[in-house]
Structures are given as C-alpha cells and as structure tokens.
Amino acid sequence: MTDILLGVGELGAANTPGDRLRTLALGSCIAVIILDAKTKTAGMVHVVLPLSKTNPEKASNLPGYFADTGIPTLIKAMGKMGCNENGKGKIVKLVGGAQIMDPNNTFNIGKRNLLAIKKILWKYRLGVIAEDVGGNISRSVAVDLGTGKIKISTPGRDEWEI
C-alpha cells in the first residue's frame, strides 16, 4: 500500500488497489477527484487558482495549479493509463474551496475556483456526483484506490467520507 502525496498544484493518477492518493491542507484550493469505473483508475489534482492567464509560465511548469490547465492535463494523464479521454464512465468528486468569514465575499477564491472547475468539467460533459466544498475549514483528502472511498479530515474533528 503506497501513499501518493500530491503537493500544491500537483496532479496524479493511480490504479493499484490499496494505494491512496492524498493531498493536504486545501484551504481555498480544491481537490478535483476523477474516478474511472472501467479501469479502476483514480486521478486527483490540487487546484490553487481558477485561470492560467494569471501566470502562463507557472501553468506550463505545473499545470495542476490552475483549474483550466489542471483538469485537461489530469484527463490526459488518465488517458495514458487506459481511460477514455472524454467524460465517458467517469465520476467526479470535489473537496475544498473553503473561505474565511467574509460576508462580502471579497476574498472568496474558493468560490471562484469552484465555478471555474465546474465550467471546465461541463466541457467534458462531466457532472459532479459528490462534493464537500465551502465552509470555513481547511480539509485534507485521501482517495482509496481499492474502494474508491474518499476520506476527508481536518484538525479537531472526526474523519468523514463522501
């Protein structure tokens, strides 16, 4: 059983049962998790910001950093592992996108990330079947390859699943 730890802006895919894809302390970042039922492959990208136009150089070095480059790159990476490079047979779950307590939503990068991600998923005709997003907590995520279960944790609370 191997833990594949994805850092900020990183993406990865795996298909060995028992392995786990993990990412830590999401804050307003969002983990986009794509599960491919046929090949039993799971992919995850730790998205930091919505659009790559903020820094095209960063986007070419670390495409997972932005929603608009991260999701297509993840789908391609999963394609190399035998998955269709379209939305067919895939399940998407989202975790993260928290915000500080800001009634005016000035600083709501989490929400902007979420909107950008859904727009890109829509292009692939991918709908989100489960999400644990928003609120004021910074989440860590572990995707279990064998079961497809997604465990979420944050300091001071019991772990939960989506």
């Binding site: 804050g27 928290a98 915000q99 500080i100 307590m101 800001d102 005016n104 000035t106 600083f107 004021n136 907590i137 910074s138 944050t154 300091p155 001071g156 609370r157």
Partner: peptide, 9 residues
C-alpha cells in the same frame, strides 16, 4: 489547526 479559517475578515 482546529480554528482553521474561522475568523472574520
């Protein structure tokens, strides 16, 4: 930690 992002802007 547990206080996370639970502060007012």
């Amino acid at each position: 930690g547990a206080d996370s992002m639970n502060y007012q802007l």
